[in-house]
Nucleic acid binder design. Sequence first.
DNA 1: TATATTAATGTTATATTATTACACAGTGTT
DNA 2: AACACTGTGTAATAATATAACATTAATATA
Lengths: 130, 130
Amino acid sequence: MHKEHTLTKNQQIIFDLIDKSTEPLKAYSILFNVQKKGIKAPLQVYRALDKLVEIGKIHKIESRNAFIACHNSSCQVAKATAFSICEICEKVTEISSAGLSKYLANFKDKDGMKYSKYNLEFFGLCKKCR
Amino acid sequence: MHKEHTLTKNQQIIFDLIDKSTEPLKAYSILFNVQKKGIKAPLQVYRALDKLVEIGKIHKIESRNAFIACHNSSCQVAKATAFSICEICEKVTEISSAGLSKYLANFKDKDGMKYSKYNLEFFGLCKKCR
DNA sequence: TATATTAATGTTATATTATTACACAGTGTT
DNA sequence: AACACTGTGTAATAATATAACATTAATATA
């Protein structure tokens, strides 16, 4: 399918933290949590985050400036992402809907412009908060 | 259709600036541009921006931390927004597609969760940059 | 009109998010 | 060896956003 990337030390530490988290993590919260592992500076975190986003292992939730691990095999390397966000408890879930991704991947605007990437964020109330 | 909001002085100054701009504006660039009109502090800008977003006169482009005026009568008070963003020249256009907004407004995820709001950002190359 | 209420303002300080710049180390070429 | 490429470490700083508090304007209702 897609090339396996071997993560470097810093990338692996940061990915593991995000991957086992039940909520999106912010960069400085990540920094705080990995300081005991020797990652001391913001830039070390941001560099790992950039790379992890680039290779599709994590996604950035733009409206929250936070990061979650990708659990959606159908999202091609960060090119097509959709999330649902609860406005009360801030729970974020990656949406994997074949219909949705097909619709958006084929969407063309009036100019016939074809897009190479999209990010969609839905907001509402989750089951618990309703 | 929807209630007309009378803008306050600061809101009007900032809206005018954004409205006549051909590109999305960032908060501190706005601040710089309205200092001659007596708006001196970031918070004065952010408060006006928050209100303008709330009443749907402007939208925030989340991936760019920038703001553009709404030119889409069909976007119900900031509840349903879609943009196309050129990754080279950074030109941003609000998309108004009845089909798209209908599709997204009715989209339900597996849990049957109904969303009250969404924001969609498409990325690609505009005509000029292609 | 008086008074209560809400929304907006002005100001200072500070928190949060992200990048620039520079030196160096490891790996795989040619 | 010389080169290119990627990642690392560190310090400094830029850019984005909010907290806290005092005051004023606008609106509503008694």
